[in-house]
Design a protein around this nucleic acid. Structure first.
Lengths: 217, 217
DNA sequence: CGATCCGTTGATCAACATCAATTTTTGTGG
DNA sequence: CCACAAAAATTGATGTTGATCAACGGATCG
């Protein structure tokens, strides 16, 4: 998963000598689109959203990042300002790595560079898939897919509810729709016994049926 | 643009000794999603579409690639089957480069690897932007954006029409809608004197107004 | 010169956005 | 722990946008 495993020992040492661990509270912004980043943020704990404001004023969540993922890497590699904003969805622990500690091994350590490259190739594939989904699928299909994604990637709590408790507005921003329609679609799922809720918590009751919805059946 | 400029002379020589130039006719498929690629295709001439079939059976065009761009690179780097299909929109000339001639310099030539990495970072940024557009903008906004994209990237013919003559169905597959709605939206643009047409050819008459539409005004 | 593909239009229904209003939950100071 | 303000969740009503099916003319190509 993490490209840093490809670093040499002395590179890792130098990095950990310079890393600063930050505690970030739920709701706080790690960086905003348009900012010039002086390094990357490695997620030690907690989950963050990567989002971008559309011209029409609505936020779109492009990716959810958890432990082990690196934020801001693309911008540092491309020497550009951030294209996305990163916001904590839970209390987080991240460590900041100055960009020169990324750039240098990129020049000198091919194993590291290749690991980063493969990781980005994965991200690009996922992004292409999301484009197709956004363009071609209904809100109903996309919500079904997002719910399964949340279960598969962030797991369940002790009672079988999705571990990651997103607000309805955040789920809507992942699906790419208005909060009201998101809620209505979720309500339909409840009536069809595909999911159940307890407060803001959501439990998937019939994963197979959700899967069929994604496939358009 | 092209990462191959970062290759050493001997690497380029070895590559050109092994490259096979192929002529591909308009409409022909270069590779299909799901295929395992044994190398990459460098576009020498002509334009191709990269598309993916959605579960609901409709094609989505994710990218248009022209001279100098490399097709299949992501799949080869990630050692995966192709995520997208590549189809010629015009008669094309491509050269095939076996994957070992890509993989080897990736291991040994950091300058090349970094060039590829930066290129992919760009692709990823564009992909994220498209996700936001698909999720948040109307067909009208997206069509306006696509028309300007076609002008900016592929230019005009001698009479001021868009050089790249896509079929209505292909434009619809870029925008992410049905052909009928695409045509209706284009007809509205004509009535508002934003564009004009001659046969399948399209001319942008009021670029600034199109830009305002994209911005949601 | 017919067959086929492409472009276009009409009609209809479903999906989605938006505004308004109400209820519920949450956070916070006393 | 309670009260109260603020934020979030929910529902209704309404208008717009988009998908789909059907039909038809015109171009294209063997």
């Amino acid at each position: 998963m993490n490209s840093f495993k490809a670093l040499r020992k002395e590179e890792l040492k130098q990095m950990s000598d310079n890393k600063k661990t930050k505690i970030i509270k739920k709701g706080d912004v790690i960086f905003k689109e348009g900012e010039r980043l002086s390094g990357v943020f490695c997620v030690r704990n907690g989950i963050s959203k990567l989002s971008k404001m559309s011209d029409n004023g609505r936020d779109q969540i492009v990716k959810l990042a958890q432990k082990g993922e690196v934020l801001g890497q693309r911008s540092v590699i491309a020497s550009e300002t951030a294209n996305l904003s990163a916001t904590a969805l839970e209390d987080m622990e991240v460590c900041f790595i100055p960009k020169n500690h990324i750039e240098e091994p990129l020049q000198t350590n091919p194993v590291f560079t290749n690991a980063v490259l493969k990781h980005m190739a994965q991200d690009l594939k996922y992004a292409d898939d999301i484009i197709v989904n956004m363009a071609q699928k209904t809100v109903r299909q996309r919500l079904a897919e997002v719910l399964m994604y949340l279960e598969d990637n962030f797991g369940l709590d002790g009672e079988g509810y999705l571990y990651l408790q997103l607000s309805r507005a955040d789920i809507a921003d992942v699906v790419g729709t208005a909060t009201e329609l998101l809620i209505r679609t979720l309500t339909k799922f409840k009536k069809e016994s595909l999911v159940s809720t307890s407060g803001k918590r959501i439990k998937i009751e019939d994963k197979k049926a959700l899967y069929n919805i994604v496939e358009g059946l």
